[in-house]
Design a protein around this nucleic acid. Structure first.
Length: 420
RNA sequence: GUGGGCGUAGCUCAGUCGGUUAGAGCGCAAGAUUGUGGCUCUUGAGGUCGCGGGUUCGAAUCCCGUCGCUCACCCCA
């Protein structure tokens, strides 16, 4: 049987849903540009190395979630699982000038995971990267921008969770410290957590089992193993957010899966999303490329999740309706032909012009006009053809008149009937 | 990758102690109105009951397999 549906975890986006996405995307373009960010469109396909080195060899994304294949030249290519690495590659290639760039992007990402609510294999993100400026105030500004973007979309009831991962050195210290603190508790922990003590001790603190939460209650916060500088950095971010009126919740358990993050990481959650409740996330990073660490801070917003959250809150945007929609109804081939020309003229003057099937009855064509919520119908049958005119019907109330078959005359008549 | 739930008309779903021709609402089409929409009424089209196999006189219904969807784990947007 031929595959009539997209691949698992991928979907056609069509109908009214597309209109919603277009609204959100348009608002994102507008808002981000007003904040001084410029769009960058990087390839969807990249050398596998870009991600493997950028995100970290041991991350779940790289180890088991990438769509990777070998091309005809024997090179290993990967469908991008996230946007940051490509943007960094882009700016790194243009030297010092690029290193203070503010760029945003928007588009599909691919991860080969099992789909569930709010998780697709092809999903879409709008994200941005602010390079340079290793300053906590930059982190706060980017976080605030992300909050503002979601608010601009109409999303309410979000929570802002923030945490710090410290520096790479801090992370080693935290891991060691946590392992020492957790080992004595191993007996009380679940099987998964006992394994996590070695593989990912931070994760133990985030276990959902009540028994594990209880057992780790007195384990010190990870930040207690970090350097004073890192703690100050994080405090400054939190204070700056507070000064901007944002209620940031320090969340020591918040872990991000990509290796490149340093210092600030955050997530914005929404209760309408189910298990995958993060609608957006981000962090400061030091992305290794060409032997250098490139500093930046960035975020990504999940389009699908944003739409889900808006939907659950009943806050989906209303796509704007074209202000003036004209429907051309024709009876027979000759009328249909004449309508083709009139339609072009009217469209050139900025009107939205739809047309019916001239081989179908007037009744069914008017039905279509109604369904398309057109404002006017222009009717052309044998009578109108003979008299070189068209019948203009105002669909709102059924009032109608005839006008000469001339684009200017029609346009003027439309304006007049609209005002009367 | 692992586990649970679900696959019946274009859509949302009834129908399963196995038993005539598988139903409804919405949508779609035609008509009631010689060339006039929305409301109403009438009529109609549309189904390999996901697919394959098995049990049975007989399967949408029971069994096995498979594909797909969905939710959750892991992890992330």
């Amino acid at each position: 049987m031929p595959p009539l549906q997209p691949l698992q975890g991928m979907a056609d986006l069509a109908g009214p849903e597309v209109a919603v996405w277009q609204v959100l995307e348009a608002r994102a373009h507008d808002l981000l540009k007003r904040h001084g960010y410029a769009e960058v469109r990087t390839p969807i396909l990249e050398p596998t190395d870009l991600f493997a080195r950028g995100l970290g060899d041991t991350t779940d994304v790289v180890q088991k979630e990438m769509y990777t294949f070998t091309d005809r030249g024997g090179r290993s290519l990967t469908l991008r699982p996230e946007g940051t690495a490509s943007v960094i590659r882009h700016v790194a290639a243009r030297g010092a000038e690029g290193l203070s760039a503010r760029l945003y992007y928007l588009g599909p990402m691919f991860r080969s995971e099992r789909p569930q609510a709010g998780r697709r294999r092809q999903f879409h993100q709008v994200g941005l990267e602010r390079l340079g400026e290793p300053d906590p105030l930059a982190d706060a500004e980017v976080i605030a921008l992300q909050v503002d973007l979601l608010a601009d979309w109409g999303l309410e009831g979000t929570r802002l969770l923030v945490n710090t991962r410290g520096t790479p050195e801090d992370r080693v210290a935290v891991s060691k410290g946590l392992q020492v603190a957790l080992r004595p508790l191993a007996e009380a922990l679940c099987e998964d957590c006992r394994r996590r003590i070695d593989t990912n001790p931070l994760r133990v603190l985030d276990c959902k089992r009540p028994a594990c939460q209880e057992a780790t209650r007195d384990v010190p916060s990870p930040v207690s193993w970090m350097s004073p500088e890192s703690r100050v950095y994080f405090d400054t971010v939190v204070r700056a957010l507070g000064a901007m009126g944002l209620d940031a919740e320090p969340t020591p358990r918040l872990v991000r899966g990509l290796d490149y993050y340093v210092h600030t990481v955050w997530e914005i959650t929404h209760p309408g999303l189910g298990a995958q409740d993060a609608v957006a996330g981000g962090g400061r990073y030091l992305l290794p490329l060409e032997g250098k660490g490139i500093p930046g801070v960035g975020f990504a917003v999940g389009m699908e999740r944003a739409v889900l959250a808006l939907e659950s809150a009943g806050r989906l945007p209303e796509p704007p309706r074209p202000p003036h929609v004209v429907f051309l109804a024709g009876l027979g081939q000759a009328a249909g032909l004449a309508n083709l020309g009139l339609a072009r003229d009217l469209r050139r003057s900025g009107l939205t012009v739809l047309a019916g099937d001239c081989h179908r009855s007037l009744k069914s064509q008017l039905k279509s006009a109604d369904k398309a919520s057109a404002d006017w119908a222009l009717i052309r049958g044998e009578d109108e053809l003979a008299r070189r005119e068209v019948t203009l019907r105002r669909l709102r109330d059924g009032w109608q008149t005839t006008v000469p078959d001339d684009p200017d005359a029609v346009r003027n008549a439309l304006v007049e009937t609209n005002e009367s």
